[in-house]
Design a protein around this nucleic acid. Structure first.
Lengths: 230, 230
DNA sequence: ACGCACTTGTGAAGCCTTGCACAAAGTCGT
DNA sequence: ACGACTTTGTGCAAGGCTTCACAAGTGCGT
């Protein structure tokens, strides 16, 4: 098997999750007119260790030059290719509440290889309402979007209690990648990939560490109290 | 050292990251009037394996009953305690663009142990503008919020180019936990914890898998082509 | 032409996480 | 009171990820 295919098949999940960060850092460097970068510099810009960066990049192939570093444009291209961003992916956002509208207005999609082709809502009363330059379409359109526009990625921005219904609908229409902003677990077939974004979860993780930090001041006292209680 | 303290000190990061999910599932069960649950059922509701769930819970202590399962209320309480959610954490949201407003309107904060005490913006022209029941306050208020309201967690919802300025300002005022929605890396001191939420990153990860899936159909052909190219 | 300074790519070791399998400990029916 | 059944908590093995450390490769100055 060729080295390229061997490499591309087996990129570890942890590495894949960091590639977008590298791509972002590279784009930044390119905008500042920097054309060459070492693993140390790029790692620092992306917030990881240089060893980790080099190992991650080694899974894509060997695009650096020893003693010199990486060419910014070339590396950005290679990462884009590995991530599948040479094509524009059609995306539909479902749920036009506050969050859905904020996502619809977000300009970061277009610049990163994604194209929001439709804004959908389950509620027929909202259908036709303008949002930015688009207007809200009914869930019934989703099959046509998959068939004629190649829709492959759905973003769920509904409340938790309708998220599963929406997911079922998307899956039935043939969507196999879902980004879920609703604070709930989605039940989907094995061949459908779901990623979840939940700010409550993130805040709770922050709270855990914040608590642990402030709690450490009283640690000795607490230990004694709890030992007595046992 | 007491078992409780030993347990609470050393909860693995991977476990901590899953605890909010368990808590959410438990809250759901409680709302449906279910008072007892097995590890198998809870794991399924939270989307993890039962072995993983039991191992995670074992880090908190031993709150299950063999042959029976877990009492929903009790377990929810223990997880809340472990995460530090018995108190309400004061949170400030910085950046009142589309995303900031959507976050400000999100009701999920209050029900999960967080209290949005202020909406801030770097742009003085926006100060005073009403958002929901609050009005936008200037960044200059942040020191006072830390001192008098115990502000500990900051949410950054600004564009990427002002995120670092805002972070510096928050850190200088004494905020040591930051949730960053801006698509950039924040440079902060070691004792400040940052978690990042970025939908572009998530979409790019989905794109990778989507591409890999559709690419597999042509794998043999591609391999041959690339081998010739070598 | 050659040595020096620099940086990549990568085995190997160590750490963390997951999954397995089962003893321990409880309930329930008889 | 007791045995059958259920489910937890956990030691252990396997797998994956990170870090270390350095050989291999490149450019530059002399």
């Amino acid at each position: 098997m060729s080295a390229v295919v061997a490499a591309r098949r087996g990129i570890p999940d942890a590495s894949v999750a960091r590639l977008p960060g590298y791509l972002q850092a590279l784009t930044n460097l390119a905008e500042r007119g920097i054309s060459s970068v070492s693993s140390e510099e790029l790692a620092s810009a992306a917030g990881v260790s240089s060893a980790k960066l080099r190992k991650d990049l080694s899974h894509l192939g060997s695009y650096g030059v020893r003693g010199v570093g990486y060419e910014v444009d070339r590396l950005a291209y290679e990462i884009s290719t590995a991530l599948g961003l040479t094509q524009d992916w059609p995306v539909a956002i479902v749920g036009m509440g506050n969050l859905g509208r904020a996502l619809a207005a977000y300009s970061g999609f277009a610049t990163r290889g994604f194209n929001v082709i439709a804004l959908l809502d389950h509620d027929d009363a909202l259908v036709g309402t303008p949002v930015g330059e688009r207007s809200i379409r009914p869930m019934g359109d989703v099959e046509a979007l998959v068939r004629t526009d190649g829709l492959a990625i759905g973003v769920i921005a509904t409340p938790a209690d309708s998220a599963q219904d929406v997911a079922d609908r998307l899956v039935k229409a043939g969507v196999r990648s879902i980004l879920n902003f609703a604070p709930c677990v989605l039940d989907v077939p094995d061949d459908v990939m779901v990623r979840k974004v939940d700010m409550s979860t993130e805040l709770q993780i922050l709270a855990f560490h914040e608590q642990r930090r402030t709690g450490e001041l009283d640690l000795v006292t607490k230990t004694e109290v709890e030992e007595v209680a046992l």
